[in-house]
Design a binder for these strands. Sequence first.
DNA 1: GCACGTTTGTCGGCAATCTGACAGACACGC
DNA 2: GCGTGTCTGTCAGATTGCCGACAAACGTGC
Lengths: 216, 216
Amino acid sequence: MRLTDSDLLRDLDKPEFAAVRAAFVPRRFLKGRQVFAPREVQNSLFIVAKGRARVYLSYKDKEFTMAILDVGDVYTTHTRASVEALDDLTILTAELAAVRRFLADMPALTSSMVKVLGDLLSHAFSVIDGLAFLDVRKRLIQLLLYEAERASADAEHILCFSHGLNIEQLATIVGSSRQTVSSLLNVLERDGIIEMRARGVICLPDLARLEALARE
Amino acid sequence: MRLTDSDLLRDLDKPEFAAVRAAFVPRRFLKGRQVFAPREVQNSLFIVAKGRARVYLSYKDKEFTMAILDVGDVYTTHTRASVEALDDLTILTAELAAVRRFLADMPALTSSMVKVLGDLLSHAFSVIDGLAFLDVRKRLIQLLLYEAERASADAEHILCFSHGLNIEQLATIVGSSRQTVSSLLNVLERDGIIEMRARGVICLPDLARLEALARE
DNA sequence: GCACGTTTGTCGGCAATCTGACAGACACGC
DNA sequence: GCGTGTCTGTCAGATTGCCGACAAACGTGC
């Protein structure tokens, strides 16, 4: 899930970013470990360098996944979200106060930061839009279409993507229950629109129909 | 609805902000007029100087209110949200590109900007949290408690606030239908927890009970 | 004061979804 | 290959909330 098209990870390798690069500390986490708790005291910025992370809100025994972060994605702590490592994870993290000190001298960094925050806000708007207006089925279809953009074609030219998540985790992204998402996926499969080729792998044999469903 | 505790409006009156202050153009709108359309081509920042504005998402014939902006609130266009004037409205608006040119020389402005964007993101998280986890009743109660913080006490020391909205508009904030919100408000009134004293005016004779309901 | 438009309260039917439960399928470690 | 734990599919009943409809109440302009 690429939340921002700004490439802070690559920017940090540029010579003019060398000073602020030193403020970013690599940290590693094993799959499944919590990376940040809600309301971390220290307001930090982090970039995914390797692996994937899940940003989620929790309430009682329920969770809602805000985002799955891929390599290059940037996020901030000091929100009410938790972050966990979906795979073995490496992040570069810096305290926001430290980064702020460089903003005055590095317009490119400032531009990047404002862009990143803007993109995060834009993503949050998308999430709200889906929750407010779309039913679960439509939200699921939207998620599938989003993933289709980064899917690769198999030997038979069918788009497939490996999300590596179980149904319950997909349900937390869509904002629904496991049973509902399971049921909806199976309807889509029986209709020939998707194919659940293996656990964590979905193929899209009929992308056009999926797109048509999204437009209804 | 104060989304940010940073006071950009007052900052702009300081001598060190004089240069960027010139980039902000006052614009006036009559009550009910559209201020910005979704995906405005020009990415702008605006501050409410007088009156109130509503930021909302729309889809088919439905609307979801992201925020009601009061004096001092800052927002950005180039999102998928529309903005309309709830009252006769004056805003100060500047193109983001113009503001960006001052960021390098004005660390205080950068700080303000990053803070504002951070606060907007935080507010968006709150909205998502409510939609994902809370039922309509709980969301309504949360809204009432939020408004209670800026309510004033009447002659009998009861907290009252004038939201100036009709039930349908309240429903767009809560993310529900007019009928459901109307019904819920009337239950709360019959239980003695709120009092709908006049159209657009709600009093809270039993704030403690309202708070207890929010915690259930 | 009256007419009219808007707002509000209420109802009943329907759809969407949740939830707990259970059995079958699958993956992994020994 | 077997045992075990996890995942998945499916079911039925309960819950939540939407939606269209209609009547009453209210506010505004003449």
